[in-house]
Amino acid sequence: MQRPNDTSTIERSVKVETHRQPMPPRERLERIFAVEHLDALYGGKPAIKDVSMDVYKNLVTAIIGPSGCGKSTFIRCLNRMNDLIPSFSQTGSIRYHGQDITDPGVDPVAVRRNIGMVFQRPNPFPKSIQDNVAWGLKVLGLKDNLDERVERALTQAALWDEVKDRLKASALSLSGGQQQRLCIARAIAVEPDVVLMDEPASALDPIATAAIEQLMHSLKSEYTFVIVTHNMQQAARVADMTAFFSISRGEEGQRWGELVEYDATEKIFTAPSDKRTEDYVTGRFG
């Protein structure tokens, strides 16, 4: 194995901004997810194989990797979203606060109640701005101080000032970036434990992207974020921990994703221990 000695290319290609606090040592972090030997299959064909990693509380964890490496499949395993796909199956375990949520006896509704999700494309409901946030609260029975809860969620999502005068307007009248922030407000209004974000900025312009990154940064004291992104700069900017997924190929042309390396973001981007990670973060691949 040959390692490049010119580490400056790495620093040039990805500027790691260090406005985050230094991360406490890993032993002192609280584990929120413990994923062990997770295989996920669609129609019997593996999409990811043998993924094991821990996700820590009050950190932003980024999942990066080339397209088709199973990033989205993995994150959708974390809140049982894949249950909606009929041909899906999985083996291995995902322990959430010690409880295996892949157990068929666990109600996916309860899982998703605690582990919210923001999707790749903004998907506001065809309702008013206010109702988009209030609907989940009402359904889940969080009806006390409804208006306050809506305002707090919109404020946390950095949208309140832009929409406070037109809460009754249709959510579809908002711009793409505003819609995505509304979806974040909708997700955090019900006070989940974890917020999963599946490429939340891929359909957005740079300004809206920056707003969403800023928002994650300011909210991570209250929530735990797991974000899938194909944008390495974004991972470097927002994430404390970064997991790099890559595509493996079988002998008969099968492809599946697997976890190559998982470490502190700084380590992944400046001194990766795997050649494949290094090739990816230096832009030599994918």
């Binding site: 309860a110 999700m117 359904v139 909708r186």
Partner: peptide
């Protein structure tokens, strides 16, 4: 839209 609703825990 359906996933957005279910992801809230409905």
């Amino acid at each position: 839209l359906k996933e957005g609703a279910l992801a809230l825990g409905t």
